[in-house]
Design a protein around this nucleic acid. Structure first.
Lengths: 209, 209
DNA sequence: ACTCTAACGGAACTCTCATCCCATTAGGGG
DNA sequence: CCCCTAATGGGATGAGAGTTCCGTTAGAGT
């Protein structure tokens, strides 16, 4: 039995291999938009990508493998965080970035598929965790700067603040399945910011006795 | 073609029918715990429930039908909200209720399956929305009482405050896939409460010009 | 108790999906 | 420019999920 993925496509990452990957990733997103993660079949993807189905099985192995690779690809596209000069602007930029991703047809479908996949596939779950760790880490930097500028209390946990801004938006998308609007983004920022200024995101004893 | 569900089991909801339903629901939860939504098969469920697979197909029609029924059942089990006398206690009770559900093997798996199902099945999505609308509505009442007691500003939106308490917990569970701890619950309550006291949950012009 | 029929269950059947074999194609180094 | 082999593609194969048929079982009303 070949190992499901990473065995092929690594030695000769040249023209054809890259082309096949691009076509398959693209077809995967299309299929996700149309049928969601459960309706995704390797067969469809192969046909849509104009690629032999053997190839899809050899390189990705399963549905979960496909969306995992898709997520890993998104992770590499470092959407660099804004630096508007004040924390409110930066948090709003973050919220807007999440909002756009959620409400974009292809990206939104991809995220939802990834979340669905992660509920039963460990590999997908890991990819999802890594993706958000990285994103959150990047944006946390803007919070640190705000602390240095004196806009927020010393010791404010950047990662937690960024999470607090995104959480209500994803909650609406995926749990209560309500539409996610610009107003939701604005409210989320306003609320997180009020709490942050009041010191509710200051971490206590970060390892110190 | 028989309509997939609700055609059987409604005219004679007596002993055997009820027994079959209980066995199937139980088997479904077991299967979800073991394999997640994606690994759920009608075949397995039927075998585990000691029930003919024809019956499972006739009454539930699909995986999504199974978890949807499961969710509808949970929705009827009205876990009545606490009334500790002050808003902090009530919000904490809510957060703890969510925390327990999330970290409970069977319930947690069921919620995750439901969320996964809802990403590609409209019926499941509707059931999920209804479930949370109801839960949030129930708990929003405690906020209204707190407003009457003068603990929170006039016009505070109860539903939004309850959502704000739960959101970070579900976000961790389902999006970033980090463990969800008691401390997360405490922090979520503290942050939401700070913002609420500062009036960040007051709705402006609720229908007025 | 008896009857009627809703609801269930076993088994055969079909079809889609995952896997495998082997011929073919096209990068990349010499 | 040629060769070597990584990588792809078509098609056969088998397993397993979903569907249907029809006989059997057991609530519910009388």
């Amino acid at each position: 039995m070949d190992q499901p993925s990473r065995s092929a496509g690594t030695v000769r990452p040249g023209g054809r291999t890259a082309r096949v990957r691009a076509a398959v990733m693209d077809a995967t997103q299309d299929a996700l938009v149309e049928h969601g993660f459960h309706g995704l079949t390797m067969d469809q993807v192969a046909a849509r990508a104009g690629v032999g189905k053997t190839t899809v099985y050899r390189r990705w192995g399963s549905r979960a493998g496909l969306v995992t690779d898709l997520m890993n690809e998104l992770a590499t596209q470092s959407m660099p965080h804004a630096d508007t000069g004040d924390i409110e602007g930066d948090l709003m930029a973050n919220a807007l970035s999440v909002l756009r991703a959620i409400n974009d047809g292809r990206l939104g479908a991809t995220f939802q598929a990834m979340i669905a996949a992660a509920t039963s596939d460990e590999q997908a779950a890991r990819a999802l965790r890594v993706f958000y760790e990285r994103r959150i880490g990047e944006w946390a930097g803007t919070v640190d700067l705000a602390v240095k500028r004196g806009e927020l209390p010393q010791g404010t946990d950047g990662g937690e603040l960024i999470r607090a801004v995104s959480a209500p938006l994803y909650y609406r998308l995926v749990v209560t399945r309500e539409p996610v609007t610009l107003e939701d983004a604005e409210r989320s920022v306003a609320r997180a910011l009020v709490a942050a200024r009041a010191g509710a995101f200051v971490m206590r004893d970060p390892g110190a006795p």
